[in-house]
Computed example of a mutant assay.
Amino acid sequence: MGGLFSEVFLSTLLFGAVTAAVPLLLAGLGEQMSEKAGVLNIGIEGMMISGAYLGFVGAYYSSSLWLGFLAGAAGGVLVAAVMALLCVRIGLNQIVIGIALTLGLEGLTALLHHFQFSRSYPRLPAVQNTHVPLLADIPVLGPALFRHHLIVYLAVALVFVMIHVYRRTQLGMSLQAAGDKPAALDVAGVDVIRTRTAAVLFTGTMAGIGGAYLANVGAGIFIPFITNGAGFLGIVLAMLARGRPLWVLAGALIFGLCLSLTTAMQVGGINIPTDVIQMLPFLAVMVMLVIFGRRASLPAAFGIPYKRGER
């Protein structure tokens, strides 16, 4: 009996960890590209909440999760476009604009949801997961790790795509130069503003899809403020990862484990206040900042708007 209990607890914990980690992974990978290019994208929380709302609305009315993800990506890109215009092209303060976008989108999505659904909270149908052949049949680990929606496997594959882009492609070199020595990149004939804009738009796309996943797959419902700080966790992940996508994946899984403890403990019959469990991800952030924060390195031109001709 004890063995069965431990297997159920472990399987529930790991399944929940993967589900909770995916939005953080997508947000962290997006933010990592933005930071590589020298842009501090504080508005990523607003991009995620926008993606969560539009992603849910898209999936709800179309009955298609993939159209929901597309709508979520569009929501994130729209917010990112405003961020790119104000901060990258005009050169306004990235922190102020990012916070303003986050607060504005949190309020706007809550208001739109109120008028659209009249205080009701409709749910989406259960998600149809993809079973990885053979691996899904492994006891305990199989159901927990290899029976998820296809977007989960695509998010993990994206980690290795990003590694290749950063290490082996001209785009990766341009992103690095845009963050470290934008004037040198400009002299080499590459448009710094365009490079940074593309990075911010990519961040918005990933954050929007992450928000849509959170609402459509993770919860099956949209409620105001559903992201609950996930975007800020993504920023921390990107900073601590120091340009390494694999570190973003590892950090997302750690935070995912913390977030999934609530469900796992309820299944195991362990009575611990939910508020205590919800504090764990942020406690983990503080511990990781203490351990790794001093080693985190940021681009030399990080957060500094670029104007052509200035050194």
Rank of each mutant, 00 (worst) to 15 (best):
Phe117Cys: 06
Ile99Glu: 09
Leu105Lys: 04
Gln116Phe: 03
Pro125Cys: 05
Gln94Met: 10
Pro139Arg: 10
Leu134Ser: 08
Gln128His: 09
Ser118His: 15
His131Glu: 12
Leu111Gly: 13
Thr130Tyr: 14
Val96Gly: 04
Pro122Gln: 04
Ser120Pro: 03
Leu108Lys: 02
Pro122Tyr: 11
Leu101Pro: 05
Asn129Lys: 07
Leu108Gln: 06
Tyr121Thr: 10
Thr109Arg: 03
Leu135Asp: 00
His114Gln: 15
Thr130Arg: 08
Val96Leu: 12
Phe117His: 14
Leu108Trp: 00
Ala110Asn: 11
Leu105Val: 04
Leu101Ala: 01
Leu111Phe: 05
Gln94Cys: 08
Pro122Met: 03
Pro125Gln: 06
Gly98Val: 13
Ala110Pro: 10
Leu112Lys: 00
Val132Asp: 12
Arg123Leu: 14
Ala126Ser: 12
Ile138Cys: 08
Arg123Ala: 11
Ile138Asn: 12
His131Ile: 01
Arg123Pro: 00
Phe117Trp: 05
Pro133Ala: 10
Val132Cys: 06
Arg119Gly: 00
Val127Ala: 11
Ser120Tyr: 07
His131Val: 01
Ser118Arg: 13
Pro133Met: 06
Leu134Gly: 02
Leu112Ala: 14
Pro139Met: 01
Leu103Val: 14
His113Arg: 05
Ile138Gln: 09
Ala110Arg: 14
His113Gly: 08
His114Tyr: 10
Arg123Phe: 05
Gln116Ser: 15
Leu112Phe: 07
Gly104Cys: 09
Leu103Trp: 01
Pro133Asn: 03
Val96Pro: 10
Gln116Ile: 15
Pro139Ile: 09
Thr130Asn: 03
Ala100Gln: 05
Arg123His: 09
Leu135Cys: 01
His131Phe: 13
Val96Ile: 14
Leu103Cys: 09
Ile95Cys: 04
Glu106Tyr: 06
Leu108Asn: 06
Pro125Glu: 05
Thr102Ile: 02
Thr130His: 15
Thr102Asn: 13
Ala100Asn: 04
Ile95Lys: 11
Arg119Tyr: 11
Ile95Leu: 14
Asn129Leu: 03
Phe117Ala: 10
Pro139Lys: 07
Gln116Trp: 01
Ile95Glu: 05
Val140Arg: 03
Leu112Met: 05
Ile95Thr: 11
Leu134Arg: 09
Glu106Thr: 06
Tyr121His: 11
Pro139Asp: 02
Ser120Leu: 11
Ile95Asn: 10
Phe117Pro: 07
Gly107Tyr: 01
Ile138Glu: 07
Pro125Arg: 14
Gly98Ser: 15
Leu124Ser: 02
Phe117Met: 05
Ala100Trp: 12
Thr130Cys: 02
Val132Pro: 00
Ala100Lys: 11
Gly104Ser: 13
Gly104Asn: 05
Val140His: 12
Leu124Pro: 04
Asn129Ser: 13
Leu103His: 06
Ile95Pro: 00
Asn129Ile: 03
His131Leu: 09
Gln94Ala: 04
Gln116Val: 10
Thr130Pro: 03
Leu103Arg: 08
Phe115Cys: 02
Thr102Pro: 02
